[in-house]
Design a protein around this nucleic acid. Structure first.
Lengths: 154, 154
DNA sequence: TATTGTTATACTCTATAACTATA
DNA sequence: TATAGTTATAGAGTATAACAATA
């Protein structure tokens, strides 16, 4: 039943042929290569990656609803509620009832949130400086990724 | 303390300026855009993404040790052990003591594992056909990602 | 009746520490 | 003493269902 075979020698490089044709796999591996340093740097500011993401979006889109925020960063409503509870308690932002539609809540940063976001953005930019890529390559890469995940507006 | 502001109108697109300069963020978002369909397709074969990844690597690298497998696909030893238990019970592969170093175990697929891997690779290739990218763009993208996460061999 | 958001909860993934066996 | 792998367990992240308030 079991195929017999010799152990793969240490000198042979691992063949990932088919997997390396997968954009999903390659994106995940790239993410995993980058994220530990990112987490470490954000942790020095008391932030997790999601929290940084939320700060960055709300800073530029003050008054955004939770619904739109969640759709943009792909966090489900129940999970977003939990993170926002934590951030609100930490005094980073506030939820305000939308006067135009009292079902929804709009988000605004406190000054502490804005300040922390600025620091975080600087720290992240540094952690993301990848010597493997030229500026042109970096630009190309970001453009191609966004072609996949950003909704095309008609 | 809290900045006052009008709700963000629905017609305005969400400004993600700084985040979109982040390769980590863009990789994660791309991964999240691709993975649900991938999971769905693999589930029809009774496989999760990790299991598919393991099958694909072991198929091409019969006799690979758990250590090298784990390093390649970035799964820690304890977590790898758990997944391999499941896959061994499902009759997909076997662990064999390495005759050259009895501390380590080498992995080989059963014929059922090989068969399932072939089916899975076909299914994944289909789920990953992204109409947003040309073949050339796809090739460029994969090359740039691999420049980041693949170890450069001297 | 549909939508926004919350609560509670379960499930999966990932991370850490302590252990066995081999070297 | 160091390494490969395992076990147990804790923690973070993600998913689902039921609910309240508003439209």
């Amino acid at each position: 039943m079991t195929d017999q075979s010799l152990p793969l020698s240490d000198s042979q490089t691992v063949d990932q042929a088919v997997l390396l044709q997968s954009i999903g796999y390659s994106c995940l591996q790239t993410y995993l290569a980058i994220v530990p340093e990112l987490k470490k740097q954000l942790a020095t500011l008391g932030l997790r990656p999601v929290e940084y993401t939320i700060l960055s979006v709300v800073k530029r889109n003050s008054g955004i609803t939770q619904k739109r925020l969640g759709e943009t960063i792909k966090v489900s409503p129940p999970n977003l509620a939990t993170v926002l509870d934590r951030m609100e308690q930490d005094g980073l932002l506030a939820r305000q009832r939308n006067p135009l539609d009292k079902r929804s809540q709009v988000l605004v940063l406190h000054s502490r949130g804005t300040l922390l976001c600025d620091q975080a953005e600087a720290v992240v930019a540094e952690a993301e400086a990848l010597p493997q890529l030229s500026e042109a390559e970096r630009h190309t890469l970001l453009g191609l990724l966004q072609k996949i995940f950003l909704p095309t507006q008609p």
